[in-house]
């Protein structure tokens, strides 16, 4: 199969390959796909908790050239966006930008899943953190109501 020049460009010069500290509460990690299926994408975003703007994004991908290109493109796109904006990203935009053929559409779906999963992870961490803060503030009163949750 011949690859589009957009896929080749991203594959040969992938943007934002790397790893962010997954323990950092401002980092959201999305790990999607499965080795048995031949695609695993890990997409990480570092978000400013005050503004909800994605300040950095990194990826690592086990998969074909189109999967690598899709993840590379997504990291480029989400940087500088708010997480709400990032959530509106659709796989069809990736298909269009990279000129993916029908058999490679699943790569774009996986990239969309990866960004959604990374944002969900970030939000979960933030909620837990806020929950902890609330719990700390309300610690003495909170104890009797334990188990009421």
């Amino acid at each position: 199969m011949a690859y589009s020049k957009e896929v080749i460009e991203h594959y040969e010069q992938p943007r934002n390959v790397g790893t962010l500290d997954k323990e950092d509460p401002t980092v959201g990690t999305g790990l999607v796909g499965a080795p048995a299926c031949g695609d695993v994408m890990r997409l990480q975003i570092k978000v400013n908790p005050e503004t909800n703007v994605v300040e950095d994004a990194k990826f690592k991908t086990f998969g074909c050239g189109s999967a690598i290109a899709s993840s590379s493109l997504v990291t480029e796109w989400v940087k500088g966006k708010t997480i709400d904006e990032a959530l509106t990203l659709k796989n069809s935009q990736i298909v269009e930008e990279l000129n993916l053929p029908p058999v490679k559409i699943h790569c774009s779906v996986l990239a969309e899943d990866a960004i959604k999963s990374a944002i969900a992870d970030f939000r979960k961490k933030q909620a837990e953190r806020n929950g902890e803060r609330k719990a700390e503030n309300a610690a003495p009163a909170a104890q009797p109501s334990q188990g009421g949750k």
């Binding site: 992938p14 390959v17 790893t19 790990l31 999607v32 796909g33 499965a34 080795p35 048995a36 299926c37 695609d39 695993v40 994408m41 890990r42 690592k60 991908t61 086990f62 690598i68 699943h106 779906v109 996986l110 899943d113």
Partner: peptide
């Protein structure tokens, strides 16, 4: 491999088979 999350997990000593993957 530098681009592969599986290789990074392998280097960290994580058994890839022990991870629950969401098959798609």
């Amino acid at each position: 491999r530098e681009m592969s999350p599986l290789y990074e997990m392998h280097k960290e000593g994580i058994d890839i088979k022990s991870v629950t993957w969401a098959a798609h």
